[in-house]
Design a protein around this nucleic acid. Structure first.
Length: 346
DNA sequence: AAGTCGGGGAC
DNA sequence: GTCCCAGACTT
């Protein structure tokens, strides 16, 4: 489709977003950091995290030199914590394998931890002027509508078709403006619900608009019923402190600190004593909460008790933290909420 | 090809 | 409440 890129680039000059915090620089470090944070995460959510992160780690070298725990703490609440681990690993790989500077070749960038084809291409196009297209949620939505592409874009077949389109449409020049234009159009005009077609530079050539099928394209993900899971978490309190344990590196909340989770069917009294060396007092059930993940719904029930310490905990990853230390701890969002409520309740 | 991985904005 | 977001990675 000729004119596709030209329409977008022209539109972007006057109607694109130009003031986002990571757009003030072509420093690959800042571009890369923003791209990772923005994976499956909206701009408004990312901005405060991005500012905090950059203030703590102004350069890639400082990030690479830091302990991964500090990175996790700054990521706490942002979700998809494998991104933070990969970010740290990537910084070290750039230092160790590439002399501290990102490679310019998109394929080489995509070899780095946490960087896939789309993110690698974005970095290469923004920072090095590469003719390398992206394919994110915005582009998929624009393509599906503009070209009338049927089928859920998450399937490999549809994705292959869209990558082919993306490669063919990518202009030789102004690549950075072009991919920024695609994302801006998807975020501000070709939105999921109620797209503003009257303001769209592609309106004349858009298949969905001509057919009045904006609401049907892109085809929605086929949904299954969410499985329900339940978990009991323990607040073992002792002299103003609470026991937290580190989660396994992979799985939900990988690598974060969390409240100890009672194994299914276990007795809290015995578990506290045998695993953590704590003699429990009276148990108090705190208000529970429901947290919905992408693929299941978790019902969390907190049980609180004051304990007497009998022995050293047998859990290597377990730590006593003062309630005043929780702000800086790498906690999952729902656990942070539970702890905040528990503190208020005394 | 399907499943795993968070949290919140927008509706 | 539901849907999905500047996706990557594992199985």
């Amino acid at each position: 489709m000729k004119n596709f890129a030209a329409r977008l680039i022209t539109w972007h000059r006057h109607h694109g977003r130009h003031d986002l915090p990571w757009q003030q620089s072509r420093d690959p470090y800042r571009v890369w950091l923003s791209e990772i944070m923005l994976q499956q995460t909206q701009v408004a959510t990312v901005i405060p995290y991005y500012q905090r992160f950059l203030a703590r780690f102004p350069t890639l070298a400082e990030l690479a030199a830091a302990p991964v725990e500090d990175v996790m703490a700054l990521w706490s609440g942002l979700g998809y914590y494998a991104r933070a681990r990969n970010l740290h690993a990537c910084a070290r790989a750039v230092v160790v394998d590439h002399g501290g500077a990102f490679p310019h070749d998109p394929a080489a960038i995509a070899e780095l931890p946490g960087i896939g084809r789309s993110t690698a291409n974005a970095i290469a196009a923004f920072c090095f002027g590469a003719r390398a297209p992206i394919l994110d949620g915005n582009v998929k939505r624009v393509f599906a509508r503009c070209f009338g592409i049927e089928g859920f874009p998450g399937t490999p077949a549809v994705e292959r078709e869209m990558w082919h389109q993306a490669e063919a449409l990518m202009p030789a020049r102004q690549g950075g403006d072009y991919i920024q234009a695609q994302m801006d159009l998807g975020a501000t005009v070709c939105t999921r619900g109620r797209p503003r077609c009257e303001a769209c530079p592609l309106a004349e050539i858009c298949v969905a608009r001509q057919a009045g099928r904006q609401a049907e394209l892109p085809v929605a993900k086929p949904r299954k019923a969410l499985p329900e899971r339940e978990a009991i978490v323990l607040l073992l309190c002792h002299e103003g402190r609470v026991l937290l344990e580190q989660r396994p590196p992979s799985g939900i909340w990988g690598g974060l600190l969390s409240l100890p989770e009672l194994p299914a069917g276990a007795d809290p009294e015995e578990y506290a004593q045998q695993v953590f060396g704590c003699e429990a007092g009276d148990w108090e059930e705190l208000p529970g909460l429901v947290h919905t993940f992408t693929h299941f719904r978790l019902h969390l029930t907190p049980l609180r008790t004051r304990v007497r310490l009998l022995a050293q905990t047998r859990e290597g990853g377990a730590r006593w933290l003062d309630f005043s230390q929780l702000d800086d701890a790498p906690l999952p969002a729902p656990i942070r909420r539970i702890l905040a409520g528990a503190q208020e309740a005394g």
